Lab assay of single mutants.
Amino acid sequence: GSVVKEKKEKALIEVRPYVEYYNELKALVSKISSSVNDLEEAIVVLREEEKKASEPFKTDIRILLDFLES
């Protein structure tokens, strides 16, 4: 629970300088966080969101995924 939350919060802070739609990304992460149990599940849902998103938000999600998977 809290470790996953920390990882996601740290990821958002780390990617902030590189993303165009930070507030939207943060809102998406919050929405996903409330419906998943762990980081792996969150990553799966983020990948689905990435497929549906259009640029440049798609790239923002990709940047976040790269950080979460590192």
Rank of each mutant, 00 (worst) to 15 (best):
residue 1 G to T: 12
residue 2 S to L: 07
residue 2 S to G: 11
residue 3 V to T: 14
residue 3 V to A: 12
residue 3 V to M: 07
residue 4 V to D: 14
residue 4 V to T: 10
residue 5 K to S: 13
residue 5 K to Y: 03
residue 6 E to V: 08
residue 6 E to C: 14
residue 6 E to M: 01
residue 6 E to G: 12
residue 7 K to T: 13
residue 8 K to L: 15
residue 8 K to Y: 15
residue 10 K to A: 13
residue 10 K to L: 13
residue 12 L to I: 03
residue 12 L to H: 02
residue 13 I to D: 14
residue 13 I to L: 08
residue 14 E to Q: 07
residue 14 E to R: 04
residue 15 V to I: 13
residue 16 R to P: 15
residue 16 R to A: 14
residue 17 P to Q: 13
residue 17 P to R: 10
residue 17 P to V: 06
residue 17 P to S: 08
residue 18 Y to R: 15
residue 19 V to A: 01
residue 20 E to K: 14
residue 22 Y to T: 02
residue 22 Y to D: 02
residue 22 Y to C: 05
residue 23 N to I: 13
residue 23 N to C: 13
residue 24 E to W: 04
residue 24 E to V: 04
residue 25 L to N: 00
residue 26 K to P: 01
residue 26 K to A: 14
residue 26 K to S: 14
residue 27 A to V: 06
residue 28 L to S: 01
residue 28 L to D: 00
residue 28 L to R: 01
residue 28 L to F: 02
residue 29 V to D: 01
residue 30 S to K: 06
residue 30 S to M: 10
residue 31 K to V: 12
residue 31 K to C: 05
residue 31 K to I: 11
residue 33 S to H: 06
residue 33 S to I: 13
residue 33 S to M: 13
residue 33 S to W: 15
residue 34 S to D: 14
residue 35 S to F: 13
residue 35 S to G: 10
residue 36 V to G: 05
residue 36 V to S: 08
residue 37 N to P: 09
residue 37 N to T: 09
residue 37 N to G: 08
residue 37 N to C: 06
residue 40 E to D: 10
residue 40 E to T: 11
residue 40 E to W: 09
residue 41 E to V: 06
residue 41 E to T: 08
residue 42 A to F: 15
residue 42 A to K: 03
residue 42 A to S: 07
residue 42 A to N: 03
residue 44 V to G: 11
residue 44 V to H: 11
residue 45 V to Y: 09
residue 46 L to P: 00
residue 47 R to N: 07
residue 47 R to C: 07
residue 47 R to Q: 09
residue 48 E to D: 09
residue 49 E to C: 07
residue 50 E to I: 08
residue 50 E to W: 13
residue 50 E to K: 07
residue 50 E to H: 12
residue 50 E to L: 08
residue 51 K to T: 09
residue 51 K to D: 12
residue 52 K to L: 09
residue 52 K to N: 12
residue 52 K to S: 08
residue 53 A to S: 08
residue 53 A to I: 04
residue 53 A to T: 08
residue 54 S to I: 08
residue 54 S to K: 12
residue 54 S to W: 09
residue 54 S to L: 08
residue 55 E to Q: 08
residue 57 F to K: 02
residue 58 K to H: 03
residue 58 K to E: 01
residue 59 T to S: 13
residue 61 I to P: 00
residue 61 I to Q: 00
residue 62 R to F: 04
residue 62 R to N: 10
residue 62 R to M: 08
residue 64 L to E: 00
residue 65 L to T: 14
residue 65 L to Q: 01
residue 65 L to S: 04
residue 65 L to W: 01
residue 66 D to H: 15
residue 66 D to K: 10
residue 66 D to M: 10
residue 66 D to S: 12
residue 66 D to C: 14
residue 67 F to L: 06
residue 67 F to Q: 05
residue 67 F to D: 02
residue 68 L to Y: 04
residue 68 L to N: 00
residue 69 E to P: 03
residue 69 E to R: 10
residue 69 E to G: 11
